[in-house]
Design a protein around this nucleic acid. Structure first.
Lengths: 308, 308
DNA sequence: TGATCTATTTGTCCAGGACAAATTATGAAC
DNA sequence: GTTCATAATTTGTCCTGGACAAATAGATCA
């Protein structure tokens, strides 16, 4: 079967690699090597797009393009099988991972939802979020990289997990407690699971969460924080978010925010970055809970004022 | 207060206008007129970015850039106030609109959620989706264009409505009935409310819905349809989606899908487009219910086979 | 070992030209 | 006056090839 070819715009959409970057890769590394249509415009064969998708994900994990681009398909497969490090999990977690991946491959949406729901109720929401969801996300991503899952199966997983977390969050009582947290992601960061995991943990601890969803413009994040009288602005960055943008964005937002509003940035996207002054980098979810406790210790006065 | 300037990449993210387009507008229409930084790179003042955002939304409604770009700020305001046509609503709907907009301006997230929840329960899910949600979406968008709401307030609305619809959908029994529908949006279409509204209506009527969330690559939509043994693939297009892409995308997807799987495309984004052959264009939500009824009339055999 | 400096790698921006698809205007025929 | 085909315009996207700054890796020295 001859799969259709992609225009450069389609490749940008499907891989997340900018058009300018695709052209410069071709010039420098000799890959990809698109055909040309009648108008001299690039047409990327489907297998090259597949390879680009894989390369993009490996780059998100820290690999550099010069190496990856030179590598043949088999070398890439080697890299994939050697790279995964998030393979530490409890025995029960491993079993669940296997079960979830199996259900995903079988495309049994209802059983998948049931299994996730059951796991959440057995472990409790906090343990589920802290110990299971993150590992599951990684396991699904790695299974895709190994070619065991398709993109649409990843989408199904994300959608089911999102529905489950939102359901759990909706079921929590609206506490009205402190701190008041505004949650969102910056433009170009569309991953929502990190946001929902954070919201679930914070809401469980009795914080007042207001989520703006994903991709709020920087200036609006500042306005929202003031409008909602937030104590904290919490941002989530996935590993797919371009590293180079993180620091300038945080710096800009910090200047926009009143000094008394704390800025928290979390997720695997903040792994290697130097943030401005008092910005808190929360690399893992336990860090989020720790930061919450710390804030409460530092602000016993506000809590007292509230109960007044 | 001197708001900071934007790089061309930031303007692309915040307005949705491509970098190439921004440069060619500057060349042709003399707007925008960015400054230059030390390296000769464009720096867009914040007020020009605001104007670009407004221009983009008006273009999404069918206005052409040549006219808008020449217009001064006051003329744009005139166009905004003359354009809105979705101002037809029931008296009760109008009251609700006013109430919601007021709560949004007050940034009272909890009261907003309460009001939406109350409206949904009073009207019932079907009426709520059919008669209220769409009008509310429009009203919020228009209020933004008139400068009455900020972007972050729109985000808050979207997030609250999304949470409410997902909660309602989760509460519906998983029927297992026919038809089996795979719902998603194509890459570059990130609006999720249209998808959730459709899922709610279809699930209410006893169809089996599998949502893949937004932005599934075309090839994966095809694979997902087969994997889930779908009878129908339903896509949602917002008015912000580039019109020119709709027809080629639908055509490509049609060739990928087995002939027996129907393709439904809905939302305001399919208003002016000529789809391939038997693709159903569902301009409004009632059209969706009509299409569902029609499918069931045409497929009584399958329904009978299922009850067997 | 750790710190400072240099070299390489890498992504993004620029100019300005080109072209096809979509839209609007023009004109002919009924 | 309406309908249809044709011409003119508008508009977004793609192209080449050069440039540069920020990030990273490598080398040198204390």
């Amino acid at each position: 079967m001859n799969r259709p070819a992609f225009t450069i715009a389609a490749v940008e959409r499907d891989t997340g690699v900018a058009k300018d970057t695709l052209r410069v890769w071709e010039r420098r590394y000799g890959f990809p090597t698109p055909e040309r249509d009648g108008n001299g415009e690039r047409l990327y064969p489907a297998d090259q797009v597949d390879k680009l998708r894989l390369i993009k994900r490996l780059m998100d994990q820290g690999f550099r393009p010069g190496r990856l681009m030179a590598a043949a398909d088999e070398e890439l497969a080697d890299i994939v099988s050697s790279a995964p490090q998030a393979r530490v999990a409890t025995p029960t977690g491993d079993n669940l991972q296997m079960a979830i991946l199996t259900l995903l491959k079988a495309n049994d949406a209802r059983a998948l939802r049931g299994a996730l729901n059951q796991a959440m109720h057995r472990q409790g929401l906090q343990n589920f979020v802290l110990e299971t969801v993150g590992h599951l996300n990684c396991a699904v991503g790695e299974a895709w990289m190994r070619g065991e899952l398709e993109v649409f199966e990843e989408h199904l997983y994300t959608e089911q997990m999102q529905a489950l977390l939102r359901q759990a969050i909706s079921a929590l009582p609206a506490s009205g407690g402190l701190p008041r947290v505004v949650l969102t992601t910056v433009p170009d960061e569309q991953h929502v699971l990190g946001l929902l995991m954070s919201e679930a943990l914070l809401a469980l601890e009795g914080a007042s969460c207001v989520s703006l969803g994903t991709q709020t413009p920087i200036a609006d994040i500042g306005m929202a924080a003031s409008a909602h009288q937030a104590d904290i602005v919490a941002l989530s960055f996935s590993s797919a978010f371009p590293q180079r943008q993180v620091t300038p964005l945080l710096t800009q937002l910090r200047t926009l925010l009143p000094a008394h509003i704390r800025l928290w940035a979390g997720g695997s996207g903040v792994a290697r970055c130097t943030p401005p002054g008092d910005t808190a980098l929360l690399h893992t979810l336990p860090d989020l809970l720790a930061a919450l406790s710390a804030w409460r210790s530092d602000n016993t006065d506000k809590a007292a004022e509230q109960t007044r």
